[in-house]
Design a protein around this nucleic acid. Structure first.
Lengths: 194, 194
DNA sequence: ACCTGAACACCGTTCAAGT
DNA sequence: ACCTGAACACCGTTCAAGT
């Protein structure tokens, strides 16, 4: 019934406010300076001491994980929608998913690396998100395989890897190059005669 | 006639020795810890003070550039060889080039990022190397295009981008994933009906 | 001409002391 | 229960003093 989200059990009002402020400040800092932006600056922008930041988030990854939660909700919702649409046009659904996640993973400089690495770091909050993304990719790839739209050896992991590689390219090179890579790779997944 | 390489004009014997030692130490450090390995440690391993390192190399990029020179020689030689062979089998030459450079660009963790970024940093020694790689890629792609082996819109830049993205994947994820990405993308470059 | 290493700047992280 | 900010560790880079 509460409009404000609860972590554990009724946090103090100022703690909750600081938590939100830290997330907002991190969002801006990460977007502008990348995921390795100085945490000191994040704390300052949030109007709290550096110790407060560490009180809420034990490390940078935890902060990033919390930050991506909302964003991921929207993405997973799209994934589910596309899985539903996949019965009609599996190839198009898969391609839309790929492009959406590339956009997502390129939101902050350095995010793509965090995501590919996150797959095997069981502890991090990012891990679950990564697994979920691979699952959705596998679902969509599975439908596309069944429909004969893509080569039978394309797995969810391949889709995930491609998306991160393209996002990384978008961060470090030009968005155009990233799009072209995605084009070629999608074409290659489609190709039947290897 | 001298067996030791000369920079500028007869450097002092100890300076030359330190230069070589620094390169050797950096090679090991970068290979083990990546291109962001602490330079302090590189200097220590080379048996010189940190100031000496900076005396020879104004920044990390310069050190990396010098380090890659020899390695690049071999790579460019291979490139020339493949261009010659390209008349016989353009597609195979291009593919061999791609796989060779992926291997090269994944030598040190973080190198791929340095390479993609290096294209527009005119000042760095890396710049020339990157341009050269794009040129070789363009040469080989051109022959493959002319032979009708790949789609007409594939450019040297695409090949360069793909190689770096795959190398990055090899650094951050598994080598297997990287290879699969390369497989799909090469297949996509081959595909005629977009 | 080149080397040394102390010195400074910067940032991540911890923790004793406060409220 | 949470916040503060000084303190420590670590690393990049500079530069005055040496040889």
């Amino acid at each position: 019934m509460t409009t404000t989200p609860e972590r554990k059990r009724r946090p103090r009002a100022d703690a909750l406010r600081n938590y939100e402020r830290l997330l907002a400040a991190a969002e801006t800092a990460f977007r502008v300076r990348g995921v390795h932006a100085p945490l000191e600056g994040v704390a300052r922008d949030a109007g709290v001491a550096i110790g407060t930041l560490y009180g809420h988030f034990p490390n940078r990854r935890a902060l990033l994980g919390a930050l991506l939660r909302e964003r991921n909700e929207a993405l997973f919702a799209l994934g589910d929608k596309l899985i539903a649409q996949s019965a009609r046009d599996a190839e198009r659904a898969l391609e839309r998913w790929i492009r959406a996640v590339v956009e997502h993973a390129a939101a902050y400089q350095g995010l793509a690396a965090e995501l590919v690495g996150g797959t095997d770091d069981e502890a991090s909050e990012l891990h679950a998100s990564c697994v979920r993304m691979v699952e959705i990719g596998e679902r969509l790839a599975g439908q596309a395989r069944a429909a004969g739209a893509i080569r039978p050896e394309v797995r969810g992991q391949d889709v995930f890897a491609l998306m991160n590689a393209a996002a990384w390219l978008r961060e470090n090179g030009s968005a155009q190059q990233a799009d072209r890579l995605v084009d070629f790779t999608i074409a290659g997944m489609r190709e039947r005669t290897l």
